[in-house]
Design a protein around this nucleic acid. Sequence first.
DNA 1: AATTGGTCTGTGGTTGGAAA
DNA 2: TTTCCAACCACAGACCAATT
Length: 337
Amino acid sequence: MEQQKRERKGYTIDDVARELGVSKTTVSRAISGKGRIGAATRKRVLEFVREHHYRPHTMGEALPGEKKYNIGLILPGSYVADELPFFQRCMGGVCEVAASRGYEVVIVLVTERDVSQLERVIAARKVDGFIFSQSVKDDPALERLRETGMPVVMVGSTDLPGVVQVDHANRDACRELTATLLAKGMRRIALVGRELEYWVNQRRLEGFVDACRQQGLTEEEYMVRMDLRTDLQIENAVEEALAAGAECILSSDEEVCRHVLGKLKRLRVSIPEQVRVASFYDSALLQQYTPSITSLQFNARELGRAACQRLMGELEGVPTEEEVPLGYQVALRESTQ
DNA sequence: AATTGGTCTGTGGTTGGAAA
DNA sequence: TTTCCAACCACAGACCAATT
């Protein structure tokens, strides 16, 4: 009971003092650095504080234990422009569930280098929990979030243990689309995509390789041109793939696919006659393109809903453990006929 | 009856005097 | 010298009486 209370409420200066068998005076001095305190005691207090994610509160901030009925939705500041449709739908799902439970959603933009906005939201205790999206490897924001001990639900993948994750079956989906293309008789398929630091790109690559290996293809036959950081690199990869006799160019996402299509158009390469094209992520543009582009359809709104439901479960102390894998559809269109 | 303004209480954190 | 007690601050919310 007492234990549960502390877990819910977070540590106060009194809790820290009691745990260490010191008075709260000592803890306060250790943290502020002001006043008379022994070096050894100070070190002991600071170590405990770091381990137990204690943060002092300042005036005007929420008192610990007070629920704010806000949740933080963390979006990648750098990727937002290109992936806007995805995040917009995902956000819609999050807001829908949050609103139905009486919560508001606070948008927090973070980049790999700048987590100051996140720091402020944490420091001011503006939210009860976080939904995190688009994790990169060794994500500083996610690490920081875990240190706080606040409930976090991850949209997408991460290798950090103990983080609740909700994601599309990316690997399975990419394996299925690739296998479908292989079943149509294509042997030389090239995969092009962005940075492998993004877990989603890693998963898509894995799915692609899975399918190729299942068909007994060697690395000579299928081509992987991932980790492309500039638009020029994508264009070069397209030329290389064509020169190597690729029958199909697969893009790891919609944004990459747009560049591929642009390059093919300039090269006057006809789709699907001279080369087939497909994407691991769908968009309105790919559907309406001439020819329409084969791609994987995911329901981003459903993903947002699922993530928010998981977080609500964590916040209300109701464990919702059923891991329902979120579905996908392979949309075969003209570009791979 | 509704609004206003004051006091009281409870919270987390800080600080000076005094004890160990 | 180090640590603790107790008073203290700033704030929020509850309560209640005075005022409109």
